[in-house]
Amino acid sequence: MDCMTYKFSIDVDRCKGCGLCVSVCPKKVLEISDKVNKKGYFPVRQAHPEDCNFCGACYLMCPDVAISITETAEDDREQE
């Protein structure tokens, strides 16, 4: 377990930029991007990924299942 860590990702084209995740993030990691996605929404982005503690509040709140947090091996971390 100790060698595992977490990977945070946003499915940019599922995101509708509603901002609910931004409002519930306890670490203020997230913000709305200024780049439009395929559907014409401004999706969310991790402005401060270094502060993320992978609590999952954003995943829980997201109405569009656009956020995922998965376990990953230590080695994979570099590829993020």
Binding site: M1, Y6, C55, G56, Y59, T70, E71
Partner: peptide, 11 residues
């Protein structure tokens, strides 16, 4: 384990 958050299989 525990904190894995991703789209359910059935979705």
């Amino acid at each position: 384990m525990g904190r894995i958050f991703r789209k359910p299989e059935v979705m």
